[in-house]
Simulated scan of single mutants.
Amino acid sequence: MARFGVLSVAVLLGLQAALLVSGFDPSPLQDFCVAVDEPKSAVFVNGKFCKDPKLVNAEDFLFQGLNIPGNTNNKQGSNVTLINVDRIPGLNTLGISLARLDYAPYGLNPPHTHPRGTEILVVVEGSLLVGFVTSNPDNKLFTKVLYKGDVFVFPIGLIHFQFNVGHGPALAFAGLSSQNPGTITIANAVFGSKPPISLDVLTKAFQVDEKVIEALQMQFKA
């Protein structure tokens, strides 16, 4: 795993950059605020209760297992292992998170947005076609094929994607400028909402026959 050393540094630098540009999580008012679900003897900050600092330990800042590949045996052929405040309580109020992204050959991380965070991604293995689309009215696509060691940034809130264009598996890591950046997968949100969006709305929006919309809704029905 010696080859992983340089790229690990790149990931850490990316995470540091994401932290520096974060303007969406409130600034910390103390050294840390380890998130707990139990409010007993706790303080409420940034949507989470803070653990009594006297009870905080190193495990509150630790996650183990990011070296384990995610399961890509699904329709998209991809897997995102997100390490946010729910996985590391010590991230609370720090405005940063991390993700491991695994791709099977020709696997896709489908078009999606992060409403609360900018993403910086580094490719560790394989090659990825990535891109993002600007907001209306331009809807301009910025796209690039990335190779091992390449880094790409997806601005906050914009639709983006990654597609494995190689013949073998691909691996990337991403830093996000929020402790809980959120994810909205476009197709799931539009065709898999609960309850479903009206057929009249979707047929007019996409200018297609109702049967097309019904077929798409069936694909994303839980």
Results as ranks from 00 to 15, higher is better:
residue 85 V to L: 01
residue 124 V to G: 01
residue 82 L to Q: 08
residue 81 T to C: 08
residue 131 G to F: 04
residue 147 Y to S: 14
residue 79 N to I: 02
residue 120 I to K: 02
residue 77 G to A: 07
residue 75 K to W: 00
residue 78 S to M: 00
residue 163 F to E: 04
residue 114 H to R: 11
residue 105 P to E: 12
residue 63 F to R: 12
residue 155 P to Y: 06
residue 102 D to L: 11
residue 63 F to V: 15
residue 68 I to S: 02
residue 102 D to G: 01
residue 116 R to W: 03
residue 123 V to E: 10
residue 123 V to H: 04
residue 122 V to S: 11
residue 72 T to L: 08
residue 166 G to K: 08
residue 101 L to T: 11
residue 164 N to A: 00
residue 128 L to P: 10
residue 116 R to T: 01
residue 156 I to T: 07
residue 146 L to W: 01
residue 103 Y to F: 09
residue 103 Y to N: 04
residue 122 V to R: 02
residue 166 G to R: 11
residue 117 G to F: 03
residue 104 A to V: 04
residue 94 L to V: 01
residue 147 Y to L: 02
residue 112 H to V: 04
residue 90 G to T: 02
residue 140 K to Q: 14
residue 101 L to S: 05
residue 125 E to I: 08
residue 75 K to D: 05
residue 75 K to P: 00
residue 82 L to T: 10
residue 165 V to F: 03
residue 81 T to Y: 11
residue 159 I to N: 12
residue 92 N to H: 02
residue 160 H to S: 11
residue 147 Y to P: 06
residue 127 S to M: 10
residue 94 L to R: 13
residue 64 Q to S: 11
residue 112 H to Q: 06
residue 165 V to L: 01
residue 145 V to R: 11
residue 149 G to Y: 06
residue 133 V to N: 10
residue 158 L to N: 03
residue 120 I to S: 06
residue 118 T to R: 11
residue 166 G to T: 13
residue 77 G to C: 07
residue 85 V to Q: 03
residue 72 T to V: 14
residue 158 L to W: 04
residue 141 L to R: 11
residue 63 F to I: 15
residue 136 N to L: 13
residue 98 L to Y: 12
residue 143 T to L: 07
residue 157 G to F: 00
residue 98 L to V: 01
residue 98 L to K: 03
residue 153 V to M: 09
residue 166 G to P: 14
residue 119 E to R: 12
residue 66 L to H: 06
residue 88 I to P: 07
residue 138 D to K: 06
residue 70 G to S: 11
residue 111 P to G: 08
residue 123 V to F: 04
residue 119 E to H: 12
residue 107 G to M: 10
residue 155 P to F: 06
residue 115 P to A: 05
residue 67 N to D: 15
residue 63 F to N: 09
residue 159 I to A: 15
residue 134 T to S: 15
residue 69 P to M: 10
residue 83 I to V: 15
residue 156 I to G: 05
residue 159 I to E: 10
residue 81 T to S: 08
residue 164 N to W: 04
residue 138 D to H: 09
residue 120 I to Q: 03
residue 152 F to V: 12
residue 67 N to V: 12
residue 155 P to Q: 10
residue 109 N to H: 08
residue 96 I to N: 03
residue 83 I to D: 00
residue 67 N to E: 15
residue 71 N to Q: 11
residue 153 V to A: 03
residue 146 L to S: 06
residue 109 N to A: 04
residue 146 L to A: 02
residue 120 I to N: 01
residue 115 P to K: 08
residue 114 H to T: 09
residue 75 K to N: 07
residue 90 G to L: 09
residue 146 L to D: 02
residue 92 N to L: 02
residue 88 I to Q: 05
residue 142 F to Y: 14
residue 118 T to H: 06
residue 63 F to Y: 15
residue 65 G to N: 12
residue 113 T to M: 06
residue 162 Q to D: 10
residue 126 G to N: 11
residue 76 Q to I: 00
residue 149 G to E: 07
residue 79 N to P: 00
residue 104 A to L: 05
residue 119 E to A: 13
residue 97 S to N: 09
residue 152 F to Y: 13
residue 149 G to V: 13
residue 97 S to T: 06
residue 93 T to G: 00
residue 155 P to L: 10
residue 118 T to F: 05
residue 153 V to S: 04
residue 131 G to E: 09
residue 164 N to H: 04
residue 111 P to D: 07
residue 150 D to P: 13
residue 123 V to L: 07
residue 158 L to Q: 09
residue 151 V to L: 01
